[in-house]
Amino acid sequence: MSRIGVAFDKARADGRAVLVGCMPAGFPTVEGSIAAMTAMVEAGVDVIEMEIPYSDPVMDGPVIQKASDIALASGVRTADTLRIVEAVAATGAPVVTMTYWNPIEQYGVDAFARDLAAAGGTGLITPDLIPDEADEWLAASDAYGLDRTFLVSPSSTDARLKMTAEHCRGFVYATAIMGVTGARAETSDAAPILVSRTREVTDLPVGVGLGVGTGAQAGTVAGYADGVIVGSALIRCLLDAPDQATGLAALRALSAELAEGVRTPIR
């Protein structure tokens, strides 16, 4: 079983959800992003979702776009992101990489899978790669034993939900709302329905993302999902801070609040 699978099993045994925290690689710098992801793990984030910054992130809202732009402007390269995976994986937390497809295609799909596995990454979340177009990635992830997380959406038909889940390994990513990433005041009514529809077609754990920003929201999502995925709200801690120390302190505080949230599921 994949390390992510182990993390989900352990959380399930503890009667709680897994907390997945997202941070762009190289934001604000390579070292800064390693410090941020390490702080998140220390404060209770179970799994790190490291996003490779991309110039045209169509699934992301303004917060992640801005952080990605800052990372790219600081000069982060795809090869650097592998170094970040290695450093963060050394904390012991599983590190899964979220990436738009073009950077992987340019690095070389097989070469990236090989190097990601060597760096200790668990696999990829692919927001703009659907299984229909993924032959090369299916082969490479099999060859190097990496997890594959494709997205399911409230608009997915039952047939697509089943097909997509069958191609996943590790966990399934359920996009809770129709829309881009970013913290919202309310989490979605569509999310519990999507999670239960997904559970009907797979035994894999289901993580819910898009919109979670507080401990209470994390608790709500933990009430019906196996994993709570938080991105923009964590990133904002760094974006809004006047300096790195303040940012990391805010990041730790929110991580701890979210970690508490996933341990008090509201059912």
Binding site: P127, L129, D132, S153, P154, S155, S156, T175, M178
Partner: peptide
């Protein structure tokens, strides 16, 4: 049928758009 012109074309989109 999936929109491939040789090695080009296709659909590289979020799953949320596939139904549309």
């Amino acid at each position: 049928a999936a929109g491939h012109f040789g090695r080009f074309g296709g659909r590289f989109v979020p799953e949320a758009l596939v139904a549309a």
